[in-house]
Simulated assay, not measured.
Amino acid sequence: MTSDKTLMIVMGTRPEAIKLAPVALAAQRDGRMRVVVVRTSQHRQMLDQMVEAFGLPIAVDLDIMRHDQSLTQVTTAALEGLDRTIAALRPTAVVVQGDTTTTFCGALAAFHHRVPVAHVEAGLRTHDRFQPFPEEVNRRLTAQVTDFHFAPTEGAEANLRREGVPDARIWVTGNTAIDALRITLERAGERAAATGPERRILVTAHRRENHGEPMAEICRALVRLCERFEDVRVRFPVHLSPRVRATVFERLQGHPRIALEEPLGYEAFVLAMSQAHLILSDSGGVQEEAPALGKPVLVLRETTERPEACEAGCAMLVGTNADRIFDEASRLLSDEAWYGQMARAKNPFGDGHAAERIVSVLADALA
């Protein structure tokens, strides 16, 4: 089917690609809109992995990433590039996801051209503009120019209503992260099962507010956990940020039971989560994915825009104090009943069909 309606999907980082890939694939299957994927390449290597994993058809690559880039540099390059791209492609609507600088710039550039904006994963809030930084402000600003607010949960919907977004512009869809997880697990099959007698702790940490001493505290906690529990093995794919790598490698490299690795491709990371006993992470996406896999997650942050995971009992905010991380992880490693309670908590982020709902709304509205 040939359509005169064009859906321009904008992504710049690995999490955006993971959560927008199901939307792009669902729109292609639906066939009522032509799909154009534009990448800013705010991240390069980690985004490349996702594009390849899902076979995304990239029409334009703005290639904005520079070494040790500042937020101002990213914002300027993304906004100018997306402005040119929207003027050239003249899409019917622009889809952005989440809370990155690319997200905000994509929404603002579309608004400047009077093109409707669809925001996937709308309505997440910590209500602290510096936690996480700059993401909390990015998502609040994006909401101001959005026409289609696709909230993953009723809590996110309530946030939008409190900010004055009309009910007619909000749809509760579930989170597309669960869609991507479902697709990947179906492909992986039996490889997703845990193997070996050791208990694996999977760790990810990268947020700007955790650079420096907070990251050092996380590292101290990991060493202490290995000292206390002889059957524990830590797997730590280390983010490419020079600030993260400097701290982590200085403190953990060479430890016999802590494996420092390069960032994993998405399927490999999903398998690592499914094979883990416990997950420690400051990632937003992991807070959504781990509960779907029945894995307790300790959130290495002071606040979260995904309170549903904590409220459901699948996740716990522990911050970055080494003593607190050690105590809560030790409890999960020692208390089988407590571990089971967190592992069996119901996933609050949807059924894995959010992308289909999003595409249906857009295709009907833009027809």
Results as ranks from 00 to 15, higher is better:
Phe133Lys: 13
Glu157Met: 10
Arg182Gln: 11
Thr72Leu: 15
Ala118Asp: 05
Thr153Glu: 12
Arg139Met: 12
Ala156Thr: 03
Pro132Cys: 05
Leu56Pro: 03
Ala118Gln: 07
Thr176Asp: 02
Gly155Val: 05
Val96Lys: 05
His149Asp: 10
Ala156Trp: 08
Thr102Asp: 04
Pro132Val: 03
Ile170Met: 11
Ile86Arg: 11
Leu108Glu: 00
Thr103Cys: 10
Thr173Lys: 05
Asp63Ile: 01
Phe111Glu: 02
Val115Lys: 03
Pro132Ser: 06
Arg90His: 11
Glu186Tyr: 00
Phe104Trp: 15
Trp171Tyr: 01
Asp68Pro: 02
Pro91Trp: 09
Arg129Asn: 10
His113Thr: 03
Phe104Lys: 02
Ile86Ser: 08
Phe111Met: 09
Glu154Met: 12
Glu136Asp: 13
Pro116Phe: 13
Ala177Phe: 11
Arg169Thr: 01
Asp63Ala: 15
Leu141Thr: 03
Leu124Pro: 07
Ala158Asn: 11
Pro152Arg: 07
Val145Met: 07
Gly98Asn: 10
Ile86Leu: 09
Thr76Arg: 15
Thr142Tyr: 04
Ile86Lys: 11
Leu181Cys: 08
Phe130Arg: 15
Phe111Ile: 01
Ile58Ala: 05
His67Cys: 02
Asp147Gln: 15
Thr76Trp: 15
Glu121Ala: 10
Thr101Asp: 01
Val137His: 01
Phe150Gln: 11
Arg182Lys: 14
Leu89Arg: 05
Val120Gly: 03
Pro166Ala: 11
Thr85Met: 03
Phe111Ala: 13
Ala122Arg: 06
Glu121Asn: 09
Val137Ile: 15
Cys105Leu: 04
Gly164Pro: 12
Val95Gly: 04
Ala59Thr: 07
Gly123Arg: 13
Glu135Ser: 08
Gly123Trp: 14
Leu56Trp: 06
Ile170Cys: 10
Thr102Trp: 14
Gly55Val: 07
Arg90Thr: 07
Val117Thr: 08
Arg182Met: 08
Glu186Gly: 11
Ala180Leu: 06
Thr72Cys: 05
Thr184Gln: 01
Glu157Val: 00
Arg182Ser: 10
Gln144Asp: 06
Gly123Tyr: 12
Thr85Lys: 02
Asp147Trp: 10
Ser70Val: 02
Pro152Asp: 04
Val120Arg: 01
Thr85His: 02
Leu160Ile: 00
Ala177Lys: 09
Val115Arg: 02
Ser70Glu: 00
Asp128Met: 02
Asp147Met: 05
His127Tyr: 15
Val137Ser: 08
Ala110Arg: 06
Glu154Cys: 04
Val145Ile: 05
Thr153Gln: 12
Arg161Glu: 03
Leu56Ile: 01
Pro57Glu: 04
Gln73Tyr: 06
Thr146Asp: 10
Glu186Leu: 13
Pro166Tyr: 04
Arg139Pro: 11
Thr75Glu: 06
Glu186Cys: 01
Thr75His: 10
Gln69Pro: 06
His67Pro: 11
Arg140Asn: 03
Phe148Pro: 06
Gln97Val: 02
Thr76Ile: 14
Asn159Pro: 07
Val94Thr: 12
Thr103Phe: 08
Asp83Cys: 01
Ala88Phe: 00
Val96Ala: 00
Pro57Asn: 04
Thr173Tyr: 04
Val94Leu: 07
Ile58Phe: 10
Val74His: 05
Gly55Ser: 07
Ala78Glu: 07
Gln73Asp: 11
Phe54Ala: 02
Gly98Pro: 10
His119Glu: 08
Phe111Cys: 09
Arg161Gln: 08
Thr126Phe: 14
Leu108Tyr: 14
Trp171Leu: 12
Val137Cys: 00
Asn159Leu: 08
Thr75Arg: 07
Ala110Gly: 06
Glu121Pro: 11
Phe111Tyr: 15
Gly98Ser: 09
